[in-house]
C-alpha cells in the first residue's frame, strides 16, 4: 500500500449491549489485524484505545469511513453513541448477532425493566437488598449528582435505532467473514446496501452432517441435547434434537455442529425471512410424527410437544428483538 499516511481511511469500533466476544473476534484476526491496522486509522475503540466521546464529536460529519458497532441497544447511552457514530460515519456495519438481531441480550424482551431489576437487584440468590433499592438515573451524593443512563424496557437492534449499511452476522462473526467485509469496504467492492455479508443459503447447505440426513424426516420424539448421546454421523433433526440450522444463514463455518452441538441460529434468518423464530417453529412442527400423524393420539402429540419447554427462548434465541413482535406485550 503506497498511499500517503494522511489519506488512510478512519475506522471506529464500538460496543453496546454485548458480551465482549465480538471485540475478541476482531483481535482474533491475529496477523490479519495488523494488515488491517496498517491500512486504516482506528479513531475510536473503547475496548483497546483511549479515545473519548468528545474526540468523535469534534470530527466532521461522515469523516469516519466505517463504524463497526456490536451489541444491542438497551440504554440511552448506547442510543446516543450509535447516533453520534452514524452522523460521523460514511458506513455503519452492525457487527455480530446482538447488533444484527438483538442476540442473547435481546431475550430480555420476554421481560421488561421492572422484571429485570427485580431479578437482578432483589431476587437473585447472591443479592441482599431488603429495602429494594434499584439503580436510579440520578443520585445525589455530597460531591454532587451521579448519573446513569436510562435502562430501556426493550432491547433494540442497531437498525431499529439508526440506519445500518451492512450486517456481519454471528456470535461472534468468524474471522474470514470479517476480513472479507473489511477488505471489501477498503477496496470499495460492496454489495447493495442492507446486505448481510454472508451467504444466502441456510446452514444445511454446508453442514457436514447433511450427508447423513434421511430422505424424509419424521420427528417421533423431541430430545434435548443433554438427553442423548449425539451420533457424529447423524443429522440432529433425525435424532429428534432441535437444530436451527435449516432456518439459519450459513457462513459460520459450522463451529457448533463440529463441536457436537446443534445450531442455535446466531447467523440469523435467510434473506427473505422476517421472523426467524416462527420459521423454525413451522418447520419443526410440520415434521412431528409425519409418518404416523393420522394415527397419533391426542396424548402422544401433546407429550411430544410438551418436550419443547420454552419455544420462545429456543426458536427466538438470537432473534427476538428483530422478530415481528419484537418483545413480550406490555399491557
Amino acid at each position: 500500500m503506497s498511499k500517503p499516511k494522511v489519506s488512510k481511511p478512519k475506522v471506529a469500533f464500538y460496543w453496546c449491549a454485548s458480551c465482549g466476544g465480538c471485540e475478541e473476534a476482531v483481535v482474533d484476526l491475529a496477523e490479519d489485524i495488523l494488515t488491517v491496522a496498517d491500512a486504516v486509522d482506528i479513531v475510536f475503540w473503547p475496548v483497546a484505545l483511549d479515545f473519548k466521546k468528545k474526540d468523535i464529536e469534534a470530527m466532521q460529519d461522515a469523516s469516519i469511513a466505517v463504524s463497526f458497532i456490536n451489541g444491542a441497544i438497551r440504554t440511552s447511552e448506547q442510543e446516543e453513541m450509535v447516533n453520534l457514530l452514524r452522523k460521523k460515519s460514511g458506513l455503519v456495519v452492525a457487527f455480530g448477532s446482538c447488533a444484527h438481531l438483538g442476540g442473547i441480550p435481546g431475550l430480555a424482551n420476554f421481560s421488561d425493566k421492572a422484571g429485570i431489576f427485580e431479578r437482578a437487584y432483589k431476587l437473585a440468590p447472591t443479592v441482599t437488598n431488603p429495602d429494594g433499592i434499584y439503580p436510579q438515573t440520578e443520585t445525589q451524593v455530597p460531591e454532587g449528582s451521579l448519573t446513569l443512563p436510562v435502562f430501556y424496557d426493550t432491547v433494540k437492534t442497531v437498525d431499529q435505532t439508526i440506519d445500518v449499511d451492512y450486517y456481519l452476522p454471528g456470535c461472534a462473526p468468524p474471522p474470514d467473514l470479517i476480513l472479507n467485509a473489511v477488505t471489501g469496504i477498503l477496496e470499495g467492492k460492496l454489495p447493495g446496501k442492507g446486505a448481510v455479508l454472508a451467504p444466502d443459503k441456510s446452514l444445511c447447505d454446508t453442514c457436514p452432517l447433511a450427508e447423513y440426513k434421511p430422505e424424509k424426516i419424521s420427528i417421533k420424539d423431541i430430545k434435548r441435547p443433554h438427553e442423548v448421546v449425539h451420533d457424529p454421523e447423524q443429522c440432529f433433526l433425525a435424532e429428534g434434537i432441535i437444530c436451527l440450522g435449516p432456518a439459519t444463514r450459513s457462513g459460520c463455518g459450522e463451529r457448533c455442529i463440529k463441536a457436537g452441538m446443534p445450531c442455535r441460529g446466531c447467523f440469523g434468518p435467510t434473506r427473505d425471512v422476517k421472523d426467524m423464530g416462527t420459521k423454525v417453529l413451522t418447520s419443526i412442527a410440520s415434521l412431528i410424527g409425519i409418518e404416523t400423524e393420522e394415527e397419533m393420539s391426542e396424548e402422544e402429540l401433546q407429550k411430544v410437544l410438551a418436550k419443547i419447554v420454552d419455544p420462545g427462548g429456543l426458536f427466538f434465541m438470537y432473534s427476538l428483538p428483530s422478530s415481528v413482535l419484537r418483545r413480550r406485550r406490555i399491557k
Partner: peptide
C-alpha cells in the same frame, strides 16, 4: 401441530 406450538409461543409473548 404448528398452531399448537404457536399458541404456546404466543403466550410467552403475552
Amino acid at each position: 401441530r404448528r398452531i399448537r406450538l404457536l399458541r404456546k409461543t404466543l403466550a410467552q409473548f403475552g
